[in-house]
Write a protein that binds this DNA or RNA. Structure first.
Length: 589
DNA sequence: ACGCTATGGCCCC
DNA sequence: TGGGGCCCCTAGCG
């Protein structure tokens, strides 16, 4: 029981706002936090308590759902989805054959005759728009060929143990070798420590300390930098004066691990001594202050060439700057590496050959450079993308592969950088398009996976998970495009664009809105409890199902956002979105 | 319960 | 080539 309880730190499921989420500051002792956390049975209790409040409508609810069918204007309690006339009917004169379908107005395109938007936890695409997932016209997400079912969820299949001779052979000969070949891949899918929420704005970057196992660095949109220990949560330092706006990137050299480099949209690079807390500016691209957006320089991409002691930095006008780490001086002139005036979104030095640099940009390209011979138009390769490239990374071990995330909802993989780079080896359709309000999604390699296969990335499009719209974090096999795991928790209803895997441990850290979450793999005990919980739930549904449907508030996270569309946790079938691979040379999707 | 707003990217003129 | 407007499966605040 312990572990799962642990995952529910958010205990203000009743009163919004007043309930007081458990922030790290307030309750420093994590054991106490565990004690307060609510178990699943509490949840049920809450639900039932809430029901009487809305009981009058609840009854209607049930009836309507039945009379109108699944797709129609069901979920009338959902204020938005119910068109005004229908709502009126319902309020006053109960059910009846409410088939006033005439005035269906689409919330997306504002035209009549159809409806789009959330129906409970399911989002209905507007048929006038291209597919939200693959961006091609002619169909919607529901019928998108890239929407395929995932075979296995995050919960592993039950262990086979038949004690036959075959099993014996398998255990003694085959299995031993398999684990030699590839260590078991453990998905950190269990919330380990609750809602860590000291950032006041959305989290924009996260980084594990390269040598101290439980030390984590986090940055937000305001420029706040947090250095903290996720085992001893009270050990936390925040720096609010290092940067004045979006903290875009952080780097620590493992060989010199007390110095932290940070890059920000305020146009500066700063280095902070983590021992003394003293910071000093390394670069300021806006020495003359604010003169309007057309001149203000922002820094997004940054990386370290540890061999040469170089810091590589790129701005939103397409220029790359080289800095000598020690003398803190610029080397040479800025070099235009992407279309003039376009943002360079990320930089990555090849782990095997640090002189080789990968840059990604708003000009729809990722480019490979030799930093020893930098000139405009001297890139070793230009990798074309459909839209803005959010990030590009060499594979963490050999540096032979490239993984990019592009706003055309595709993750691209190049298997061999010395081969033909004309087109990617694979394109994996995956929902990570974003609007300006979110931190860009970036698919990142699992640094522990020396087969250089697994990547992690948050998902934009929501999925109906037991009646709640959630945005999972996806683990993707970049060789096959298969979804290995989707990580989510009913308490996290916000989108999780920032994800980082621990360099050594099976730990995932997620930045979702203002909150940070730590995930670890599920233990046997977790699984057992989960099954029990599920069983209990089934029982409740079975015995008093009709009344169960509302509970709009019961799942709201601390964020208390209305990012969760109303009425989303109606009971509804689980639908899954996933992704598919497009092999080289296959017809255009 | 609203309504506002971030300084995103794209399209169009 | 540059500015204005438009589009949103956002989130949090007043």
């Amino acid at each position: 029981m312990g572990p799962t309880t642990r995952s529910r730190f958010v205990y203000n499921r009743r009163g919004r706002g007043g309930g007081g989420q458990c922030t790290v500051d307030e309750a420093s002792d994590d054991d106490e936090q565990r004690a307060i956390s609510s178990s699943s049975s509490d949840e049920e209790a809450d639900n039932e308590e809430e029901e009487p409040e809305a009981s009058g409508e609840e009854v209607d609810d049930g009836d309507d759902e039945e009379s109108e069918g699944e797709d129609g204007a069901a979920e009338p309690a959902n204020k938005e989805s119910a068109p005004p006339p229908a709502a009126g009917e319902r309020k006053g004169g109960r059910k009846g054959p409410i088939t006033i379908s005439l005035k269906k107005v689409c919330k997306v395109c504002k035209r009549t005759g159809h409806e789009a938007g959330f129906k409970g936890a399911v989002y209905i695409d507007c048929p006038m728009k291209p597919c939200f997932l693959c961006k091609m016209p002619g169909h919607t997400t529901l019928t998108c060929p890239h929407r395929v079912a995932m075979e296995h969820g995050v919960i592993p299949a039950p262990r086979r143990n038949t004690n036959t001779s075959l099993d014996y052979v398998f255990q003694s000969q085959v299995k031993g070798k398999i684990s030699m070949v590839k260590p078991q891949f453990l998905v950190p899918n269990q919330l380990e420590c609750g809602n860590i929420k000291f950032h006041q704005r959305r989290v924009t970057c996260l980084e594990f300390h390269p040598t101290k196992n439980s030390v984590l660095l986090s940055g937000d949109k305001k420029g706040l930098l947090g250095v903290w220990d996720y085992v001893k949560l009270h050990e936390k330092i925040t720096y609010d004066s290092v940067h004045s706006c979006i903290l875009n990137s952080m780097k620590i050299d493992a060989a010199n691990d007390e110095i932290l480099y940070t890059a920000s949209s305020d146009g500066t690079i700063s280095c902070t001594d983590l021992d003394t807390g003293i910071g000093s500016p390394l670069l300021n691209l806006n020495p003359n202050g604010w003169n309007g957006p057309s001149t203000w320089r922002m820094i997004y991409g940054m990386d370290l060439n540890t061999d040469k002691g170089l810091l590589l930095v790129a701005d939103n006008f397409g220029f790359l700057y080289l800095l000598d780490r020690r003398s803190k001086t610029r080397i040479g002139h800025p070099v235009l590496i992407h279309k003039k005036g376009s943002k360079v979104t990320s930089l990555h030095c090849n782990p095997a050959q640090p002189d080789v640099l990968l840059s990604s940009g708003n000009d729809h390209y990722a480019r490979i450079w030799d930093t020893r011979k930098l000139e405009p138009n001297s890139s070793l390769a230009s990798l074309a993308h459909g839209r803005v490239v959010n990030s590009g990374y060499f594979s963490p071990q050999s540096g032979n592969k490239i993984l990019t995330t592009c706003q055309d909802n595709r993750i691209r993989v190049w298997d061999y950088i010395f081969g033909n780079l004309q087109s990617p080896s694979r394109e994996i359709v995956h929902s990570h398009d974003f609007n300006r309000h979110l931190t860009p999604f970036k698919a990142e390699w699992d640094p522990k996976d020396y087969t250089e296969t697994v990547a992690v990335i948050g998902r934009y499009i929501s999925e109906n998970y037991n009646g709640v719209a959630l945005h999972p974090i996806d683990f993707i096999d970049t060789n096959s495009g298969k979804l290995l795991a989707e990580v989510m928790d009913p308490d996290i209803t916000t989108i999780s664009p920032v994800n980082k895997l621990h360099p050594r441990d099976d730990v995932l850290v997620t930045g979702s809105s203002r909150s940070i979450f730590i995930w670890k793999p599920k233990t046997e005990a977790d699984l057992t409890e989960e099954r029990a919980k599920q069983k209990a739930k089934e029982y409740v549904y079975g015995s008093c199902s009709r009344k169960k449907s509302n509970g709009k508030h019961d799942n709201s996270s601390d964020d208390d956002s209305d990012g969760s569309p109303d009425g989303k946790n109606k009971k509804a079938k689980k639908t899954r979105y996933t992704h598919t691979v497009k092999g080289k040379g296959k017809s255009k999707v």
